[in-house]
Amino acid sequence: MTPRVSVKAFLAIARTALTAPPSKRQTPLTFVVGNESADLDSLCSAILLAYLRTHSPPHTLHIPLCHIPRDDLSLRPEFTSVLRRAGTSPDDVINLSELPGAGSLSPADTRWLLVDHNALTGQLAQLYSAQIEACIDHHADEAKVPRDSPLRVIEKRGSCASLVVAQCRDAWDALSATSSSEEEEGARAVDANLAYLGLGPILIDTSNLQNADKTTKFDTDAAASGSSASYERKAFHDEVANLKEDITSLSLRDILRKDYKEWEDAGVRLGTSSVPQDFAFLAKKAGGEDALAERIREWAKEKDLGLMAVLTTSSDDGKFKREMLVWAQSEEAVQAAKKFEKQRSEELGLSPWNNGTLDVDGEGRWRRCWAQANIKNSRKQIAPMLREALGA
């Protein structure tokens, strides 16, 4: 691999390796994949980590994989914005639609490095869980990655991209140091492209480094290390944040699937959707609270969920707020949801949303919608609470 290849060229090389005929494919293939919500942190961290690992000894090609099908990329204009600054586009990234089936690519011929999660979920988990070799993550440790893995980093950060930058800082510096004078201008351009891949999610996940509950010294240091990119930090953050939060053109189904993750514990499938607008916005868009509830029910049915959680964030007059809806649709899920409410209401500062107009209790169904006073807790903390209530 030639040092300082552009991000766009790197993605083309990775695609060529993946799509080569089985008889000419060099195996094992090493994949870097983010979590199935495929938020900006997961998507950018996977590309950044794959690039830097590929350009570091022993120079094994790492293929970055977006954990969504190609059609879902259109739901993430914020990712498109960051990719543009990184000198590439969504057409260049590799996604689930391009992953060969097990009949063409044996799981035994793959190796997996997880970023922004430490346990595979969804369809990938069914085939490739045994091939996980490493992870870089900032979520709760699910003990799925072997303790003796050569790379196993699970630490608290506002953004997983901060961990990637820190872990690969020496490799990044070494690349810059090996550039000849003739290559220097191109090297600076590639450095700027890579910096945007790290800066985008770091700034979004920490609210431009202003969210005291999320921002750590490591996030601030990582953002500073990417300052070689010529950019105005607030303008960059605001551009990407506005694209991420503008869901006015999306259907309710697309809103619920844009940032979606699921798990299965104790025989109950839990699905969670994170939404960057409040329930008043969603109800208005749906045509009323009953219509909103029906859209959520339809999505839960489509995903075959026993327990569904919708977690919202929004800002009114500059004041950040969170709301949450939990909907149980089986007896086991109802018991778990009631346990969650009893154990976590005080901790999370839960109070009825809109006087309980979205609440339901009876006939094997249970639904609660709350305002969440404790805004420190996001899905990163709430999903484990729900899973614990299920008996995970």
Results as ranks from 00 to 15, higher is better:
residue 106 S to I: 06
residue 49 L to C: 13
residue 52 L to T: 15
residue 44 C to P: 11
residue 32 V to A: 14
residue 57 P to K: 04
residue 72 D to Q: 14
residue 37 S to H: 09
residue 39 D to I: 11
residue 90 P to V: 15
residue 102 A to M: 05
residue 59 H to Y: 14
residue 101 G to A: 06
residue 36 E to W: 04
residue 92 D to M: 09
residue 106 S to A: 15
residue 54 T to V: 05
residue 68 I to V: 12
residue 80 T to F: 02
residue 57 P to M: 01
residue 31 F to G: 06
residue 72 D to C: 10
residue 44 C to T: 14
residue 32 V to P: 05
residue 34 G to F: 01
residue 66 C to P: 11
residue 101 G to I: 05
residue 41 D to K: 11
residue 89 S to N: 13
residue 28 P to R: 06
residue 101 G to V: 06
residue 73 L to S: 03
residue 37 S to F: 08
residue 79 F to R: 05
residue 71 D to V: 11
residue 39 D to V: 13
residue 105 L to E: 01
residue 89 S to R: 14
residue 53 R to E: 15
residue 54 T to L: 09
residue 43 L to Q: 10
residue 48 L to A: 15
residue 82 V to S: 02
residue 96 L to Q: 02
residue 68 I to F: 09
residue 106 S to Y: 09
residue 35 N to L: 02
residue 85 R to Q: 10
residue 99 L to I: 04
residue 61 L to G: 02
residue 66 C to A: 15
residue 43 L to T: 04
residue 77 P to K: 09
residue 36 E to C: 06
residue 59 H to K: 04
residue 83 L to E: 05
residue 96 L to F: 00
residue 30 T to N: 06
residue 99 L to G: 03
residue 94 I to C: 01
residue 46 A to C: 04
residue 30 T to L: 04
residue 94 I to K: 01
residue 77 P to V: 10
residue 79 F to G: 06
residue 95 N to R: 02
residue 85 R to H: 14
residue 94 I to P: 01
residue 46 A to Q: 03
residue 103 G to F: 05
residue 86 A to P: 12
residue 33 V to M: 00
residue 60 T to S: 05
residue 102 A to H: 06
residue 30 T to H: 10
residue 106 S to E: 11
residue 36 E to A: 08
residue 89 S to K: 14
residue 46 A to S: 14
residue 86 A to Q: 08
residue 76 R to T: 07
residue 86 A to T: 10
residue 91 D to S: 15
residue 31 F to W: 04
residue 50 A to T: 00
residue 58 P to H: 05
residue 94 I to Y: 03
residue 70 R to A: 12
residue 79 F to N: 10
residue 50 A to Q: 00
residue 40 L to K: 12
residue 45 S to M: 02
